[in-house]
Design a protein around this nucleic acid. Structure first.
Length: 236
DNA sequence: ACCCAGGTGGCCC
DNA sequence: GGGCCACATGGG
């Protein structure tokens, strides 16, 4: 199995229609920070709240005291660090790019990436998410989920960020829309099926996966989806 | 009461 | 170059 085959099979199986809803480059940037080590639903709630308050703008965040912003994003976890990161990003955009995210992005992927990585709290993954989803540049996000899925299928066993990203870039046509879609498929697949404890019995690529665990009991086979919490009567 | 979540940076060797 | 840790809330 190669990357294109994995992509086709995940696409045919999951049929995702949207993966990073955002109405502006700034919304992508804020979302990329808020979603760090957090479920997307938590970040999305905060984004909706900021939007409803009319403060999902560079200028509004830039003017706001950091303590106030912390309170607004608290439910996404790591809120002190994330608040400082987003404030630093807003300050950087005001000082260097007329508070316009697109003014930074239009410099091109390499210059933009260097600037993003110079900011506290923005690492390779967050920078590449911004480049891909806000800038439309074909940079694949070599997240932990990607390493897990490609590792289990045996396609690529190295989880080092740069080497993993290099593998994707070298083995897939560098098309931003395709990268974004493929990334979304892998994230969805890793969260629902290829989890820490994988559910191989419902995996669309199990016949091509050397890690597939055939003898998975059929417990949750039907769509019942009751999470029983293994909390049965303890003593025998 | 666990484990996991669309990471990053600091410190250690 | 890796391994460990703090950062923090929310959901299953």
């Amino acid at each position: 199995m190669d990357l294109d085959q994995l992509y086709e099979r995940l696409d045919r199986h999951y049929r995702l229609t949207e993966w990073w809803p955002a109405e502006s480059a700034w919304e992508v940037m804020v979302g990329a920070v808020l979603v760090q080590q957090t479920a997307w639903e938590n970040a999305a709630r905060v984004l909706d709240d900021l939007k409803a308050r009319g403060i999902l703008t560079v200028a509004a965040v830039d003017r706001m005291p950091v303590e106030e912003f912390e309170g607004l994003i608290r439910s996404t976890g790591f809120y002190r660090r994330k608040a400082r990161t987003i404030k630093a990003l807003a300050l950087h955009l005001r000082q260097r790019h007329h508070s316009d995210p697109c003014d930074m992005l239009c410099q091109g992927p390499d210059a933009t990436r260097t600037e993003l990585l110079s900011l506290p709290g923005i690492g390779k993954e967050t920078a590449d998410a911004i480049l891909l989803f806000a800038g439309g540049y074909p940079r694949f996000i070599a997240a932990a989920y990607v390493a897990r899925v490609l590792g289990r299928t045996g396609m690529f066993l190295d989880s080092d960020y740069d080497r993993l990203q290099g593998y994707i870039h070298a083995n897939m046509v560098p098309n931003a829309a395709r990268y974004a879609h493929f990334y979304a498929l892998i994230v969805h697949h890793a969260r629902t099926v290829c989890r820490s404890h994988p559910r191989c019995h419902r995996c669309p690529v199990r016949t091509s996966c050397p890690s597939a665990d055939e003898e998975e009991e059929e417990v949750a086979d039907q769509e019942g989806e009751h999470q029983g919490h293994g909390d049965r009567d303890q003593e025998r």
